[in-house]
Write a protein that binds this DNA or RNA. Structure first.
Lengths: 128, 128
DNA sequence: TGCGTACTTGCGTCATAGTGCAAGTATTGG
DNA sequence: CCAATACTTGCACTATGACGCAAGTACGCA
């Protein structure tokens, strides 16, 4: 019978870098860049806790920076997939893309677990 | 009898910003800044997939930037809680803090769910 | 059609951050 | 004790990004 050979974790970091796994796609700098600025994080928290679509004007009342700055941050957050923009007349509503965001975060956590030797992850071949 | 009044989600973003919930702590810009640079992300993926503690020299072979740059990135990643450094003689080993990282990511996902109206989150009062 | 509201975009400024080189520090082995 | 190894740190340069102001665009309403 053919034995199912368990894939080993890469012996060196260089080998690890060469073999692509789920981590490489999930560790997206563009997504996490969205969460790397205090002002943006405040905006995200604000909209997330509100639980509904919010207009730019409403959101701008939450923080002390200029209206134009808020507008730019929101556009960036929409581009990076954190928020979703819908336009109604001249008002733009931004809402949090809860499910997509949660899925990304949990997938990343899962992918990390797959690599973790302590959890038997690294020897199951799913890491890369 | 006293009725257990379900807390409503904040009516406006400004109100939402004022009430502190789990999100405010979990949305940590310092942590996510670690994941916001392509070079750093490559280093993290490299070490994570390797599944063991890696020396700075080994890690530096993975990417094209200068050795000193790698050293600085690794130090930053350790400061922000992504990596853990242990010194053995003159060699420093960096390893991924899998469990802490996964916990942070999953907690954030959970906190977001608590805010999501579609999942009945926003009306349970746990959001803020 | 003109005006006000809601938002976006261009531009200049300033601060922060990434990078490479070179020098410095710690540790090991001869 | 000296030299080599492994890494860190100082310094200068450049790039990127956050910010505010002002001008521009889009839309609704009278």
């Amino acid at each position: 019978m053919t034995q199912v050979r368990k894939r080993r974790p890469p012996a060196t970091p260089k080998q690890a870098a060469a073999c692509c796994g789920p981590l490489d796609d999930l560790l997206d700098p563009v997504l996490f860049k969205a969460f790397s600025d205090p002002t943006r994080v405040a905006l995200i928290a604000c909209i997330a806790k509100c639980g509904r679509g919010c207009s730019v004007g409403e959101i701008a009342e939450c923080c002390s920076v200029d209206f134009s700055v808020v507008s730019r941050h929101l556009a960036l957050l929409a581009r990076s997939g954190v928020l979703e923009a819908t336009k109604d007349g001249r008002t733009v509503f931004y809402r949090v893309r809860y499910s997509e965001l949660c899925r990304s975060l949990r997938s990343l956590a899962d992918a990390l677990d797959e690599c973790c030797p302590a959890k038997g992850g690294a020897s199951n071949g799913k890491c890369c």
